[in-house]
Design a protein around this nucleic acid. Structure first.
Lengths: 222, 222
DNA sequence: TTGAGTATACTTGTCAGACAAACCAGTCCA
DNA sequence: TGGACTGGTTTGTCTGACAAGTATACTCAA
């Protein structure tokens, strides 16, 4: 293999035009700059980025595949709008995935280093922007998922995380999330992991997600 | 809404050309007609179905999004080949998803009707082709997942099911799967569900998947 | 004034053709 | 024998175009 001859090749990345457009549009969606109020047409994207329409089309279809955009046949795409039921669906799926993972991590007394670091960041950004909280929070949970080393589960969680971030930014999450409380709940989960108490870790996660879910759902219902 | 005026509108489906090509290629992949031995080029698909190259390209990229095809930049696509490690990864992910689901179903003593029907079919096709067994087997598990009514979990499981079917057909599964044993193990799971015994159901599923996983992994290693 | 039907504009679906860039394999030369 | 070059193959992207579907606006009649 090539990697054996050059153990530490510098990683460079060349993005195709479609990928570049996709990434930027996705960032705009996740940041809340693009809402479900206005339609996202292929021509808009094409002119905005000065690319051909097929390129814009490919980018839109990629995002549709990620469930960030929705569109029907012969209709322009819109940002997927997440109602209370969708939020409950997403958080229920999260709970399924993460509770199983915590059970496994607890069995081997594994406390992922990356999760600890992400949790520390939550306190660090206290008082900063409201949206600054979302990133480390998601990174904490993603680190837990990544710790089991299962590629497909990580992929699945990634697709969920996109939708989670989407609805977190839609509700501007100003007063929904208290950084100190989140940090404490995360800390509790990590402690249970260190102690190897699977059930305690799972139930702590359940309540952690349940409160977030209900607050989000209520905010979206209004 | 339109649906309130016409309560039972006939469901008709118009597939786009891209979707039609995608579906057919996917079927060829899952049936084993397309293997990872030969590359799948855009021009091949385009000429085979008498469509333009962009159409073929879109179909290929959809299947790449489903993880049935893989391809790097400027390289032709190939059917994803699943080694022993990939099989273990997939089955571990399945076990995560399904065990959590069984716990929930057992808590409400739910025995999905569709799962019972699918399990009956497994006995019905005994002695028929080897591949005939795969369909009802997957349908049994899919029915369990669908019973919880979570859209995102069902979606995730669907993407896994594609890969499962892929490696099941790659190993021609002649002597790997004994229909009577499978039926019995499924039956046991359903019984545990009816009794509301979550742990027993989950552990029965675990061993059910573990045997299938190891046999598949061994066969692929050879 | 209101309703229905038509007409028009907008958007997407698909195609053809083209060129550049990247990859691959085979060949040639030192 | 090893490296560089060169050709063919494949993909990435673009331009331009037309057909088909959707939604909106407009007109005309009741």
């Amino acid at each position: 293999m090539f990697q054996e001859k050059v153990p530490m090749a510098r990683q460079i990345a060349t993005k195709s035009v479609v990928d570049a457009v996709t990434d930027d549009v996705r960032a705009r969606i996740l940041s809340g700059s693009l809402t479900s109020a206005a339609a996202v047409t292929e021509l808009e994207i094409a002119t905005a980025y000065e690319v051909a329409r097929p390129t814009a089309k490919a980018a839109i279809e990629k995002l549709v595949g990620e469930n960030l955009l929705v569109r029907g046949s012969h209709k322009s795409a819109r940002v997927a709008e997440l109602g209370p039921d969708a939020v409950r669906d997403i958080y229920q799926a999260r709970a399924y995935l993460e509770s199983g993972i915590l059970r496994r991590l607890a069995a081997s007394h594994t406390v992922p280093e990356a999760a600890v670091a992400a949790n520390a960041e939550i306190l660090a950004v206290t008082g900063a922007g409201d949206l600054a909280l979302v990133e480390p929070d998601l990174r904490f949970h993603t680190a837990l998922v990544a710790a089991v080393g299962n590629e497909r589960i990580a992929r699945m969680y990634g697709s969920l995380a996109g939708e989670v971030r989407l609805c977190m930014t839609r509700v501007q999450s100003l007063h929904l999330l208290d950084s100190a409380a989140i940090h404490a709940e995360h800390r509790q989960i990590l402690d249970h992991l260190a102690a190897g108490d699977a059930e305690a870790a799972a139930s702590a996660l359940d309540s952690h997600l349940a409160t977030a879910r209900e607050r989000l759902a209520e905010a979206l219902a209004a």
